[in-house]
């Protein structure tokens, strides 16, 4: 996978975004959805990238996808949510930047902004898919500013951001940096943080402990459980330190609140 970002024109209005194939060092992140649809602070990685490109004036984005392009197409539609025209092109394999430019660049126009979505364009120094720790580090890097532009998000205390309609028990402890999405629930005497992200619609039962971890959207975390250095999404529990990944069979410990597998949404 190339880590090169090419900006051939400072004012490029077109972008070619290469959506990476499943990566050998982070296989669990692409089990449920293509890598670019991985939950990332209340959105998907692709959503963050499109939001940034739109803010930079890009108006035409071509997504080059070899892993489940139909799923990506369903997630982004025509790009109306970002005010950007988005087209999804199915490729047989992950293209390099040079191959993408040769195949999809238009020599008449200014050369497009072309890059592999192996890092967010707003955070070029933070690779996403080198290892699980890198994915977590990138999320924590974006955490202080992510979500503050979402409707109803508020900073409850220094470093603790909570989304719209989320209910936090008065006896729960939230230790920053900590980010809780919209419509989440945190039960009595639960402890979240530091360095913790809880996705939209997640339900953290009483006395659970979540530390240096990510709880995916619409995920139930059972009472008195302990989630450390992990990514819990639905029934899947991934240890971010050693890559060990299991499916929890007991629903009272960990499970999907939306088992039909919704794509992490956006609420801006």
């Amino acid at each position: 996978m190339s880590d090169t970002t090419q900006q051939s024109s400072a004012n490029a209005l077109r972008a070619l975004v290469i959506c990476p194939d499943p990566q050998p060092d982070v296989p669990a992140l692409s089990r449920r959805l293509p890598l670019v649809l991985t939950p990332f602070l209340g959105k998907t990685v692709l959503d963050h990238a499109l939001t940034f490109l739109a803010s930079e004036g890009v108006r035409d984005v071509r997504l080059l996808c070899s892993d489940r392009p139909d799923v990506i197409r369903a997630a982004v539609g025509g790009g109306e949510e970002w005010g950007v025209k988005v087209e999804v092109h199915a490729e047989k394999r992950e293209l390099t930047v040079a191959e993408a430019l040769a195949k999809h660049g238009n020599p008449v126009d200014a050369a497009p902004h072309a890059f592999v979505l192996d890092r967010l364009p707003q955070m070029p120094g933070a690779p996403l898919w080198d290892d699980y720790e890198g994915w977590m580090r990138a999320m924590l890097e974006l955490l202080p500013v992510a979500g503050l532009d979402r409707v109803g998000s508020r900073e409850m205390s220094p470093g603790v951001i909570v989304g719209l309609r989320s209910r936090i028990s008065p006896t729960a402890r939230l230790i920053g940096p900590c980010w809780v999405g919209a419509n989440a629930f945190v039960g009595p005497k639960a402890t979240l943080g530091p360095n913790t992200v809880v996705g939209d619609g997640a339900y953290i039962e009483g006395e659970a402990l979540v530390e240096r971890s990510v709880v995916g959207p619409d995920t139930y975390v059972g009472a008195m459980t302990e989630v450390r250095n992990s990514f819990a999404w639905g029934r899947q529990l991934l240890n971010l330190l050693n890559g060990s990944c299991i499916e929890i069979s007991d629903r009272f410990l960990l499970h999907d609140l939306k088992p039909d597998l919704s794509i992490p949404g956006r609420m801006t």
């Binding site: 008195m224 459980t225 302990e226 989630v227 450390r228 992990s230 529990l237 240890n239 050693n242 060990s244 990944c245 299991i246 929890i248 410990l253 960990l254």
Partner: peptide, 12 residues
């Protein structure tokens, strides 16, 4: 095994 450790840790 690492997966057993995960379930032991999850349940404390």
């Amino acid at each position: 095994t690492p997966t057993v450790v995960q379930i032991l840790e999850l349940t404390r």
